[in-house]
Design a protein around this nucleic acid. Structure first.
Lengths: 222, 222
DNA sequence: GTATAATATTAGTATATCCTAATTAAGGTT
DNA sequence: AACCTTAATTAGGATATACTAATATTATAC
């Protein structure tokens, strides 16, 4: 069995690889708030495991092997099922789930996970709209656009909110930017300026910077 | 925050202290399946913590301080609430809960625990009939007798089953010796021999050795 | 009351994970 | 092409937890 630490590295490498195509030592270190040498050490160990979880090229970075990707998707499945469980069964809000899911994901047996998945009706999305990999690590394909990419006047349904900080999630919830809410871009300031968004849930308008709108996604199948 | 390892030592010392009055190095080592020197090291560390969790006398053993007892009861509360949750919400059987609860108990935030307790209606007993300490570490008083202590012809309601091995629990469940079931001692063989027990749930009779009947408890308030 | 058995501790290592400080490699600039 | 900056690695340690083998202490038994 993998240690919690290795599982966390797997998750991080998976995210970085899918967001930027490549997981460098310092990107991993930043994301996990550990020092660079700790990452180098760990990457060597993960590349030396049987089977190797990553391929590692010194001075370049890491890439998940098929075995590593499968394990990463397992951890992500558990994390997202836990978040869904915390919201649907225990009444957490979407900004409260992350830290608790981060600890529970390393303490879950296969039986626990399958029971939770069944209890929730085998959900395919977590409370932030992220896809939940199935038992075999398969993810559905879906097409979405970032809210930033919409032009003024366009509208759509929020399908995913990839904000990492709980405070941002809490704020978005407060102003009516929740999952599955239809929104319209009223205005888009030039020079990478803020977007003014109307929520059809709350009926209110709010200006949001692009670091935020970049992380809000709209269902592309209008 | 305490490490999982320290939490496990606390639990073990608590149990030994309450069963035998004293936690010796080797009793702790046996119970946790670790080597004696590991225990000595840990006891020193726990006695040196601020505040100390135990008082430790070399060559004698350990005893929980008030602070240590409070922490131990916290862990036991989480463990027993988790077991109750696994049975009532996720459909585990009473023999399946232990290992999973043992891992979850170290990954639970105060919020999670309070939500689970509330979801279950703040239960006071776990699936084995063990008392669940309240938020402040308080346990109800109750009086019970071991099944072994009943004479032939006497009957009572099973209030607690303290079997440690899952296989024993599974077997007891199969033959109808479950919590809250009324049973009668039909026969009690001499020379520490087996007891023949009738279950009014299953309607069947079974001979059980005293290592087992010692760990089955009967409500003393008939 | 000394010899022995049982129990506990110390000594010395190992592993996993993290750190800081010092060094080395890669890539871009003039 | 030598230089400088940035990023990554190596060197050297720290902590928490475990182990085995060797030693010390306590308790028991004659």
């Amino acid at each position: 069995m993998l240690t919690s630490s290795v599982e966390n590295y797997l998750k991080t490498i998976y995210y970085l690889q899918h967001e930027t195509g490549w997981a460098s030592t310092s990107a991993i270190a930043d994301h996990m708030t550990v020092a660079n040498p700790s990452v180098t050490m760990m990457l060597k160990r993960m590349a030396a495991m049987q089977p190797p979880l990553i391929s590692y090229t010194p001075y370049e970075g890491a890439r998940l092997t098929p075995a590593g990707e499968k394990q990463a998707l397992d951890v992500i499945r558990v994390h997202r099922l836990m978040e869904t469980f915390l919201v649907r069964v225990l009444g957490y809000t979407w900004d409260e789930v992350h830290a608790d899911a981060d600890r529970l994901e390393h303490a879950s047996s296969p039986l626990l996970i399958e029971r939770i998945s069944a209890l929730l009706g085998n959900p395919v999305r977590d409370p932030h709209g992220e896809d939940i990999p199935d038992r075999n690590g398969l993810l559905p394909n879906r097409s979405e656009l970032s809210l930033t990419s919409l032009a003024a006047g366009q509208s759509g349904r929020i399908s995913r909110v990839a904000a990492d900080k709980p405070e941002i999630l809490r704020y978005l919830g407060e102003i009516g930017l929740n999952l599955d809410v239809t929104v319209e871009v009223l205005d888009k300031a030039p020079f990478e300026g803020p977007l003014t968004i109307h929520s059809f849930e709350s009926g209110s308008d709010h200006a949001l910077g692009r670091e935020v709108t970049n992380r809000i996604f709209i269902d592309a199948a209008h």
